[in-house]
């Protein structure tokens, strides 16, 4: 609190901006007084990153061009782009990419939409709000092993709760659905877990962002007679658009890297039909010791993820520009 006092006094005379302000690109204030100032701020982080992630990434890229032998000092033949050619021509790899894509479509839009709704609901004062916020965070902190196991039971074909609900309560199906014994139903079940587990995370990020939306904008909108939806569309959403993009990109990366839930619920089966990139890479690397192939697949995946993230970013940005 003490750090804020002088800041407030100093900024009282500054007129509040009418829109959530966007930094001006290329303005004089964005040019550092000395060229080294931004580098000095970024240096510790970049050094850490370069050493512990950048260097292993480069090593991993190098490995992807070899038939790499795990034991140091033994022969690792250079194979050029062979591992990449193998990955691109491997139907199981593409099955895994398609599965991750399907998982992404089933989880990311739903997670973001639902979490946004609950974040808005939880943002305004209500009875026991802190308690609710904690409860919504609980799935995020519950161990993957435990929740994957429980979801497996929920979706079990013989006496799982989901089948009981569909069959005995809704009478929607005449016999139990073998959820985890077929590709798409299994992916749907894993997606349900994905949404359930990630909701709380998104809500926490959105709540932090909602705290930054200026209250006077709501008041202005209320004076204009805006209803709840208009307030959301014209004030809330534009105010947190950057955060929505951030959450979407993190969720997209997360969806392509879905791992423990698949491993524990289906282990990629039956017959590899629910394999996702990470379970497949893990198997190639640590079960089959084919590290070159696994690395090559991971770089192909990185390109795919970058492309999808960029596409998503473009779409969100263009919408904003169209609205102006």
């Amino acid at each position: 609190m003490s750090t804020e006092a002088p800041f407030r006094a100093r900024t009282e005379h500054v007129p509040a901006p009418s829109r959530p302000s966007k930094p001006r690109r290329g303005g004089s204030s964005r040019r550092p007084a000395h060229w080294w100032i931004p580098w000095a701020f970024a240096a510790p982080g970049l050094a850490f990153f370069a050493l512990t992630t950048g260097y292993p990434l480069v090593r991993s890229l190098q490995i992807s061009f070899y038939q790499w032998s795990v034991l140091p000092g033994t022969d690792s033949p250079f194979v050029g782009f062979d591992n990449y050619v193998r990955a691109l021509g491997d139907p199981q790899f593409w099955t895994s990419v398609v599965n991750a894509g399907a998982y992404l479509l089933m989880t990311v839009p739903a997670t973001i939409a639902v979490s946004l709704v609950f974040a808005v609901l939880l943002h305004r004062p209500m009875p026991a709000r802190t308690l609710f916020r904690v409860l919504y965070y609980i799935p995020v902190v519950t161990s993957w092993v435990v929740v994957s196991l429980l979801f497996k039971y929920l979706f079990s074909s013989d006496n799982g709760a989901v089948n009981w609900f569909l069959q005995d309560v809704l009478h929607a199906v005449s016999e139990p659905v073998p959820w985890l014994e077929q590709r798409w139903t299994a992916l749907a079940a894993v997606s349900m877990l994905g949404i359930w587990k990630n909701l709380g995370w998104c809500i926490v990020v959105f709540l932090a962002a909602l705290g930054g939306v200026q209250q006077d904008l709501y008041e202005a909108a209320a004076l204009d007679g805006a209803n709840a939806w208009a307030k959301f569309a014209n004030v809330t959403f534009p105010g947190i658009r950057g955060t929505v993009i951030f959450v979407a990109i993190v969720q997209i990366i997360g969806a392509f890297n879905v791992f423990p839930s698949i491993l524990l619920m289906t282990n990629g089966g039956p017959a590899g039909s629910t394999e996702v990139p990470l379970t497949y890479m893990y198997k190639q690397a640590f079960s089959f010791l084919d590290f070159g192939f696994a690395s090559a697949m991971s770089f192909v995946m990185a390109i795919i993820i970058s492309a999808v993230s960029y596409l998503q970013y473009r779409i969100t940005r263009e919408k904003k520009e169209a609205r102006r």
Binding site: S156, S157, E181, G269
Partner: peptide, 22 residues
């Protein structure tokens, strides 16, 4: 035979089902 034979079906585990008479 129940779906367990496909691995990871989430059906009642074999020893559980045995004890329960399933």
């Amino acid at each position: 035979i129940p779906g367990n034979i496909l691995g990871g079906s989430g059906d009642t585990p074999t020893s559980d089902g045995l004890a329960k008479g399933l």
